[in-house]
Design a protein around this nucleic acid. Structure first.
Lengths: 115, 115
DNA sequence: CCGATATACCTTGACAGGTGAGGTATCTTG
DNA sequence: CAAGATACCTCACCTGTCAAGGTATATCGG
């Protein structure tokens, strides 16, 4: 896990929201999805994940319900709300903007050859 | 200033180091440069800037000296060290990596059409 | 059957970086 | 002479991350 936390910090919520866009999911699964999508390069810490869920719920961006597993550990599912979709889109916009700004500031073109 | 702090958080030090790559500079100037480079979209808060300088100095990434202005307010200049250059390059690598990871997680391609 | 591992959830306290609010001093310009 | 720009700085507070701890169930090899 070479990616330092502070680099990702602030994107956590958008990442979680984005993972709920297509279908409801639960904590463990969301994290495994992240791991898979990034070819094992990144994974949220559990504490980070669950505190983010609480924030998102409080903000009205997600709702939650318990799954009815007959077998195995119980699962708490999360569902993105309409407001959550808006927030996700907003987060994405901010990401695109931030990316442009940081790229500009790090003057990527200066280095690209040698990296 | 639409870019939220947490999005930039963690890049501050790399941004400052990058601004010192070509020539020494001082706090106020560095911030104005950032403002100019980003077309007034982004600017570091002064408190953020100066605390970052202290960290960078402590880490041995920059050295500092007072300018000999005959007129106007005094300026404290900063100079990037060899280690600072390495750290900057490392920060840039991390940025490139993080960018790829976040892009993947936000599945940018899903949206790009509508954004 | 027992230990290890995977699945699945959760909380707490500590820590680090960002920042609002406050301060100092000099120079320019109307 | 007041206002604003230049230029520096610190402190206390806030927020997100995370190590460390906890709970419970299922599977699988030996």
């Amino acid at each position: 896990m070479s990616i330092t936390a502070d680099i990702i910090r602030g994107h956590t919520e958008t990442i979680i929201l984005a993972s709920l866009l297509e279908h409801d999911s639960y904590g463990y699964q969301i994290n495994k999805d992240i791991l898979r999508k990034t070819d094992n390069r990144y994974e949220l810490k559990e504490a980070t994940l669950y505190t983010a869920f609480r924030r998102l719920e409080q903000a009205g961006y997600i709702t939650t319900y318990w799954g009815d597993e007959k077998v195995g550990a119980r699962r708490r599912y999360y569902s993105i709300t309409q407001e959550g979709r808006k927030a996700c889109e907003q987060g994405l916009r901010e990401w695109i903007e931030a990316k442009a700004v940081i790229d500009r500031l790090l003057e990527l073109d200066q280095w690209e050859v040698s990296l």
